[in-house]
Design a protein around this nucleic acid. Sequence first.
DNA 1: AAATCTCTCTAACAATCGTTAGAGAGGTCT
DNA 2: AGACCTCTCTAACGATTGTTAGAGAGATTT
Lengths: 201, 201
Amino acid sequence: MSTRDKIMDVALNMFSERGYEAVSIRDICGEVGIKESTLYYHFKNKKDILDSLIEKFRSHIDGLLAHVDEITDKPAQKKGKNVDPSVQIVDSYMIDSYLFDPFCNLMLRLMMIEQFHNEELRELYEKTLFTDPYEIQMNIYKRLASAGMMPEEDVEWVVKESHSYMTMLTFKYLLNGDLTDKRKKAYCKEVHEYMTRRFKA
Amino acid sequence: MSTRDKIMDVALNMFSERGYEAVSIRDICGEVGIKESTLYYHFKNKKDILDSLIEKFRSHIDGLLAHVDEITDKPAQKKGKNVDPSVQIVDSYMIDSYLFDPFCNLMLRLMMIEQFHNEELRELYEKTLFTDPYEIQMNIYKRLASAGMMPEEDVEWVVKESHSYMTMLTFKYLLNGDLTDKRKKAYCKEVHEYMTRRFKA
DNA sequence: AAATCTCTCTAACAATCGTTAGAGAGGTCT
DNA sequence: AGACCTCTCTAACGATTGTTAGAGAGATTT
């Protein structure tokens, strides 16, 4: 890993735990194992580290959304009595590549901390935790309705319900304390319970 | 308001927006209009301000919970076709005296920020945003089931659903950006929509 | 009147903050 | 060989950090 990447990695870990302002350049350099002036060769100032992290996150998210769009653009198909598998594909993909992904998870924590006094991060926070997931779920369930798997008028209500459930679980298990295997398992267990309960009715 | 109270008020406003470490003693003193040494007459150090805020919040919460227990200790009664009004009483009381209360709301924001590197605040955060509200809702719906207003086996599922909905709305509208009247209204509107949809079925 | 208590001030302390100038080592080009 | 580029270092800058000693003003108690 390049020095620049090491700096970003260490900085994100510290920023997401203690907040941007509370972490000093010397804290980061000490952990990376370089002198302060070396850091200033790679970044023009402290803010530049934060901006680079945000930029990296934005392009990461753009990639995820493009991939999800690819799946949900085709109309849903009925396979026997079962729901189209793309629902599960999207869900498990979003969990692996987004909520459980170490980089994304730490970025979400950073946004949670900084959103109260950084308007740019507030908008990104609202988009990635509330707006985008809601839209993704909306697209999925609209496809199911178009394929005749559920009544059109149920879509909004079902989406609001499942979206709120997922969001609550995210805050409770994935954005609370360290992201341990125990918390990941508890999250998966509750998601699974919710899914089986919802799709049996 | 006493100097001590003014310090705590200003400190909470700053801590909840920028985080504990990012706020300096001089920031607080400048806003209150005192010299740094005066602050140290009222608090033994910076940490003591935070501890005092936590202590104040704990006793505030204890008062709220005691009041809610008083209401939900008596068994629910059927008034014609309507649900026992204590459900609405508890809900609107919790909104006014907790989620919309300026002190509590700022404390929730502070806990959101500090939970990642302060174990005491992490536990308080989990308790006040997840554990306690879940238990309160559980008590309410168990009473309704005992009074024959809904099947016993539906209770857990209904509580999980409504609790997750309320929690998501809290994060989306009340712990996101400034607590403006606009956001409060949006919150109330969605709560009302959820309630009417739930209780019509 | 003297002593004590309550509260705020001036002034300073060592430590840490973000940032910079400039030197040097190692590799690649002309 | 000399010039240049990439990367890291030493050493320091002024500003800000949390905290403290000690004086003084005003009210209350002895």
